[in-house]
């Protein structure tokens, strides 16, 4: 698994645990708003945290849809090239 994927999985887990929620098993197929106890503010936190830690902002030119962890990883890997 790529370094970026590791970071995304770790930060997602961190955000869920900070809410004092029990973190379910996260896989790349997990969908943020369906399978994980996350809301839109948590997603925004994840995006901002990722920008701060990786320096990558795949949304610079506007919003792009994503639902699952795998889709988000693809966006970051695409923007990092």
């Amino acid at each position: 698994m790529s370094n970026l994927a590791d970071i995304i999985l770790n930060e997602t887990r961190q955000i869920i645990e900070n809410k004092a929620e029990v973190c379910p098993e996260i896989t790349v197929e997990s969908e943020f708003l369906v399978d994980l106890p996350m809301d839109s503010l948590d997603l925004a936190t994840l995006i901002v945290t990722l920008e701060l830690t990786t320096g990558i902002d795949p949304f610079r030119d506007g919003f792009k849809t994503f639902h699952s962890i795998a889709e988000l990883i693809a966006l970051y890997e695409g923007a990092a090239v």
Partner: peptide, 12 residues
């Protein structure tokens, strides 16, 4: 506030 594509702004 930090801009983001999901909630517009996020409080930091």
């Amino acid at each position: 506030a930090k801009a983001n594509p999901i909630t517009g702004a996020l409080i930091c």
